[in-house]
Amino acid sequence: MSKEYEAEGSSDAKKIPRRVEFVKDRTAARVRQEETETVMTVPNLVVREIIAFMILVIVLSLLSLFFNAPLEWEANPQHTPNPAKAPWYFLGLQELLHYFPPIVAGVILPMLVVLALVAIPYFNVNLKQEGMWKQHRPQTLVVALITIGAMCIVLLIFDVYAMLVPTLVMTVLMLIPYFVHSEKGFIGWLGTRPVQWWIMTWFVLIVVVLTAIGTLFRGPEWSWTWPWEHIY
């Protein structure tokens, strides 16, 4: 934040370059003031770090005492387990593989996710984090409904109910504050959520649902199986 100026270009070593200040609207004076309350790192932060690390070690030690890491039979390329599952953090993707062609599920979608994550800070959309329905309400509604509608059609074509249902749930939640005017309670809180909040929360919900289905609810031939029906 300290480099909010541009120095005048000059080759004269003796002349002090003139600084041209740029004051952007996000550098609100109020924000600066909030930031000034500080405390000493030793002991405040360091003691907290040590405590957090100790709790971490204790929790993991207890886990490791009571639960053993899995170890199955020795690897056998001749004997394919059914289903063969990737580690849990890839099971969301493996679940997608069930609906979309491999190039979409295995390549395009993961690449899009990583690219989207990298791009987040460069969008500069709504830096003030205003509620989604604060301004341009009708336009926002039209754009949102067209985008979500198009996505839902694609999901319907490929029968991806595992993504369709969470998408519809999020859409309903998003629309409630548009129609119900309330400043208080849950609806009021929903109304203050900015557009980036809705997108990220939708993404997280999809990731959690797909990963949970892939991990807990998929059995032989990737068919729907209840967790208590198999010993995976």
Binding site: P70, L71, E72, A75, N76, A84, K85, A86, P102, V107
Partner: peptide, 15 residues
């Protein structure tokens, strides 16, 4: 190098 390992990695690299 158990079944979990071998097939987990096979599935992933096939993707």
């Amino acid at each position: 190098w158990d079944q979990l390992a071998f097939w987990g990695i096979s599935v992933g690299t096939n993707m």
